[in-house]
Each structure stands twice: as structure tokens, then as C-alpha cells.
Design a binder for these strands. Sequence first.
DNA 1: CGGATAATTTAGGATAGCCTAATTATCTCG
DNA 2: CGAGATAATTAGGCTATCCTAAATTATCCG
Lengths: 230, 230
Amino acid sequence: MSVNAAIASESLTRSVEDYLKAIYQLSPEGRPASTSEIAHLLALSPPSVTGMVKRLSEHGLLEHVPYRGVQLTDEGRRAALRMVRRHRLIEAYLVEFLGYSWDTVHEEAERLEHAVSDTMVERMATALGNPVVDPHGDPIPTVDGSIHEPACTALSDVPVGETVEIHRVHESQPERLRYIASLGLRPGVRVRVLDRQPFDDLVTIEVGGDQHVIGRELGHVLQCAREGDQ
Amino acid sequence: MSVNAAIASESLTRSVEDYLKAIYQLSPEGRPASTSEIAHLLALSPPSVTGMVKRLSEHGLLEHVPYRGVQLTDEGRRAALRMVRRHRLIEAYLVEFLGYSWDTVHEEAERLEHAVSDTMVERMATALGNPVVDPHGDPIPTVDGSIHEPACTALSDVPVGETVEIHRVHESQPERLRYIASLGLRPGVRVRVLDRQPFDDLVTIEVGGDQHVIGRELGHVLQCAREGDQ
DNA sequence: CGGATAATTTAGGATAGCCTAATTATCTCG
DNA sequence: CGAGATAATTAGGCTATCCTAAATTATCCG
Ligand SMILES: [Mn+2]
Ligand SMILES: [Mn+2]
Ligand SMILES: [Mn+2]
Ligand SMILES: [Mn+2]
């Protein structure tokens, strides 16, 4: 079985790897992911997802309850975390050593994650000094597949008057990332919430001496650490 | 047509890219390559090659005369040289920045060449200072698709008594490359031919104070620059 | 020139992935 | 509870890529 798993994991295709990663990202905790969520995230049709899900569950990478959703098995979760580690380390490497900015790394990593060897990933990690987060503040799983997702609060949910530090920026679209950067927002930056509108979750923040109004979507993209968070 | 070519070149698959590169490497000068040569190089069956060749010639990447062989079109040659550039720059980058040795880079580059973006390739080239040869001494095509293949003489063909410099090592198998390195042979090293047997192309050489006997196969892998070569 | 041999192509088939249209299951609400 | 809305699956198809076995073409040689 362990040999089987090893052999199988050598030969996961790009599609399979992206499915597993998508399912993991839709529910890191293991709650079932729905066909349409997966289809939407991967930009595929729902029937394509149903078909692939059937195959992956036959291979023991996930469990599928028809009409109910899918959950990764331990083996599927391990494979997914391996891809997440690759993706985030590649992003970090590209930013550190090849002059990429945080808005352009995702696309490159999305392809490279399937092509690099384990050896190369670990050499990149070493060259980087074994970082624990990627350029967007997302935690990098360890080689043995553990990951620490620190508690976070969406900027939209931070009480008025509080000062928080941006931990993670949950966004991969380049234009949006550029806009966020243009406001001076990035992991590690401290932000004070000055005001909140009664509707639409609009919050006014102060960052680096400037004030900005942040809408609901952006407010959920920006994940912050409050003093009480651990 | 130019738009067409651009669109088409975006979407070449890994298989197609490897076919084009293989055909180029079987005859850089454009002499027809045979089905079985291609099949052997790519470790595929001849019927698979026939099928792919048919498709590629429909796409204008090569010309096929049934039972006679295939030749790259200008577009096919351009795509092939693009892959050769990628492959060799990746090899150089891995050796320079990620601690690879020349016997392990080929396999990694064989996958990465299909996954990196043009941007990344050029950033690697810049980081390397725009090298003109790869770790095996093979020339790196320029971005605009020109390549200078310097005149070379196989070590087997070097006259007795002559001293030559190793230019290129035409080998990709790791064990063989390690053996070659263990003899102190690599691009840039000077070698003196001391003796030649009457049969089997065995030559005795002196390199770095040591003497070695080189057989026919290795003698053809080691490509040298003679004084007269340009 | 004609047959043996080697190279190549054709025939027929498999798998992975993806799609649209049609069908079925589940959920929600009056 | 049952009908309509919504989500998911099944049915049926397509392309790319590979394979083996059978047929065809080229070549070489006596
Ligand atoms: Mn990917
Ligand atoms: Mn990231
Ligand atoms: Mn390749
Ligand atoms: Mn090389």
C-alpha cells in the first residue's frame, strides 16, 4: 500500500494535482467540497469534475458521496499539501531571486509546481533559508505535510478603533494585488480601523499616514492578526 | 499567419515540443530525420511517431515525405530552437544557482523547459550574465533563434601528437557524465592525444598529468576544438 | 529482375481529460 | 406535501497521445 501510494504519487498528472490542491483549498479542515465549487475554482464544467472525482476516489485520493460532496483521504491530503508547499516555495523563490513581484508569481508557480522535482523544491527552500510564509503571507507546509494556519480576522470584521497587522492577502488576481499594493497594504503592515459604515461592510482604515475605504470583498481578502489572535 | 503562428506557439504541448526538439537535434542542418530515429530518441514506437508527424505537418511545423523522412519548416525550427535555448539556459541556471552537477541537470531541464515562461527564461539568462554555452559546452541559441555551432572534431579523430581543447560533451546519461568527469574531462580542459590503436578507434590521451584510454563511443561524445578549427 | 529484409505506415484500440445536453436528486417554500 | 429551482450526475462525443498487430513500401543483392 505504501509502495502503491509512492508509485501512484510519482505519476499524478497536472490535472490531478490541481484538483487535489483545489479541494484542499476549498476546505483545509476537511469539510466536504461541492462539485460546483471545484468546477468554479478550476474553471471547468461540473460534469468534468464529477468524472474526475469518480476516478480520484477509485484511486483512493478522495471520498465521494454522490450529491453530497468530496473529502480528501489522508493520501489525497498529503498530495495536496505537497503541491501547496511547492506552489508557495516557488512563489517565494521567484520573488527573492528572479525579480518577480507578488502579482505575477501565482501564474508562474501554477505551472512550475507540476514540473519541479522534490530535489529542486528543497534546494529552493534552502536557498531561501526555509521560509515559513510565501509572498502573500500564506504559510508553507513542511516537507512532512504539517501546516500551521494561524488564526486570522478579516479586516472587515476588525472592531473600530483597533490596530491590527496584515498577515495574509488572500488574492491571486494580478490587478487586484497591484491595487492592494498601491494602498501600501501587504503582509506585516499595521493598519488602524477608523470607522465602519452600517451597511456593506465598508471600513475606513489608516495605513502609513493615509486613509482608505475598503469594501467587503477586499475586506475579506485582507486577513489580519489581532492582539488576541494566536 | 504571424498571428496564427503566435497563437499556435502558445499552445504547443509538451509532446509536440519534445518532438520538434528531437527532430532538430537529429539534424540541425535540416537533413531529413527518419521515423525510427525519432522514435528511438523519444523512446516511442514508430507508429506513434508516424501519427504525430502527420499532425505536425498539418500544422505546418514540419514537412513529411512518406517513407522518406521529415524536415522542420521555418516555424518548426524556430519552435525547436526556442526549446533548445530554454533547456540549455535552465541547465546552466541549475548548475550556477541551485547546486546541480552536470549529470543531474538534463532530467530536470527536460521537464522545466515546458513549464517556464519566456519571462522566466530571460530572467535566468540575465542572472547568469547571458551565457553562450551550457554546462556541457553546448551553444545556447539567442532569443531571435540564431545559433552558432562551432566546428568540432571528435576526440577519436584527433591526430596523434596533437593537443586539443574539449569543447562539448555530447552526453546526457548521468552515469556516463560522472565517469567522464572522473577522468578530469569537461569543457575547457586541454587534452593531448598520445597514441591510437589500429582498430576500434582506441586513443590514449593525457589530461592533467594522467593517461587514459578512450573507446569509440566516448571518443565521439567528446567534441574538441583543434587549432585549425574556427 | 524478384524476393528477402528492414523501415514505415495503416488499422484498430486504449486512456486521460474535457465539453454540451439531458436526466435525476435534493432542497425550499407556500 | 409537492412543485419549481438548483445542483449533480449520466449520456454521448471529441481531441491528444500512446500502443500492438498487420499491411505496405523501399532497398539491396544475387
Ligand atoms: Mn497548477
Ligand atoms: Mn501565494
Ligand atoms: Mn522535454
Ligand atoms: Mn546540456
